[in-house]
């Protein structure tokens, strides 16, 4: 029974891809179609389920679960936490996005090795990423929540300003900045629609639908992944995970998306 469903789904997906190659006029339509194809079955759920297990199971040299991990709303609270990140954390004296916060919890509370964690920060087939799974679980717990990020702390304001500055930073052989590709609305690269990330509409559209299960990669990808991949297209060196620039840009996008309703993890191209 299950395999018949799988077969039908595969056929539908293939049909969908053919349709796509033929005459798809916009990515949004394509994504809507992908989502319809999968129906209620969002493959991101596999990551969410594994993430929940990782969150609740005692692990690491200290053999504790993550009940003590404070994502900003109090120890162990995941519901709604992502919609208020990044934020200033007193204990680490840093502004952190979800992913860098998770690294702090996994290393400080569970005693896991940071270098080891970062080696598998982005999953690749059989090599699974714990950070991606945990991110999927925590983001899903903010579905339906309204983006509301505070920049009241001076360090949070500074992160936002840095993100704003980096957005316009032109460099590399091609002179690209984020603004080259995301500075105007209604533009496309090939057939991919590019949201204007400076405006609430574009920022909300983009931010609230990440992380996502990428059909083209068969992997769930987070905002840290998205940013480092856009920098790759910009021909710049490798963005460091949890770096000042990664967090600044995330703060800039999250704040611009203020008022948007979280729908992630979603299915993306």
């Amino acid at each position: 029974m299950k395999s018949i469903y799988g077969c039908i789904r595969g056929l539908l997906l293939a049909a969908c891809c053919v349709t796509l190659a033929w005459a798809q006029s916009s990515t949004e339509e394509a994504i809507a179609e992908y989502r319809a194809m999968f129906g209620d079955e969002n493959p991101a759920e596999l990551w969410q389920i594994r993430g929940e297990e990782l969150w609740t199971t005692p692990r690491g040299p200290k053999n504790v679960a993550l009940a003590g991990c404070d994502l900003g709303l109090g120890a162990g609270i995941v519901t709604g936490a992502y919609a208020q990140l990044p934020r200033w954390f007193e204990d680490t004296q840093r502004v952190q996005d979800l992913e860098s916060r998770l690294v702090s919890c996994l290393t400080d509370l569970q005693g896991l090795d940071e270098a080891e964690l970062l080696k598998s920060r982005f999953g690749d087939g059989a090599k699974k990423s714990d950070l991606e799974a945990l991110t999927a679980y925590i983001v899903a717990a903010s579905r339906g929540h309204t983006m509301s990020v505070s920049i009241a702390h001076p360090a949070a304001q500074a992160a936002y300003d840095l993100g704003h500055g980096v957005f316009y930073y032109r460099a590399g052989p091609h002179d690209f900045s984020c603004a080259t590709c995301h500075g105007e609305s209604g533009k496309r690269i090939r057939l991919q629609v590019l949201p204007k990330l400076l405006d609430p509409v574009g920022a909300r559209y983009a931010y609230t639908s990440w992380p996502g299960y990428r059909v083209s990669q068969g992997e769930l990808r987070t905002m840290e992944w998205r940013l480092q991949d856009c920098f790759r297209q910009q021909r710049l060196p490798q963005l460091r995970y949890g770096s000042e620039v990664a967090i600044g840009l995330t703060m800039f996008l999250a704040k611009n998306a203020e008022g948007g309703i979280m729908t992630a993890p979603n299915i993306t191209r």
């Binding site: 300003d161 840095l162 500055g165 980096v166 930073y169 032109r170 460099a171 590399g172 052989p173 002179d175 920098f231 790759r232 021909r235 710049l236 060196p237 490798q238 963005l239 460091r240 770096s243 000042e244 620039v245 990664a246 600044g248």
Partner: peptide
């Protein structure tokens, strides 16, 4: 500008042909 440049320098690492000097701007940039 100084803040952005310093943060860029601290937030990237060379990867294959994408070396750190790619962060440097010419006058036009």
């Amino acid at each position: 500008r100084d803040t952005v440049v310093a943060a860029m320098e601290a937030s990237f690492e060379a990867k294959k042909q994408a070396t750190m000097d790619r962060l440097d701007q010419d006058e036009t940039q």
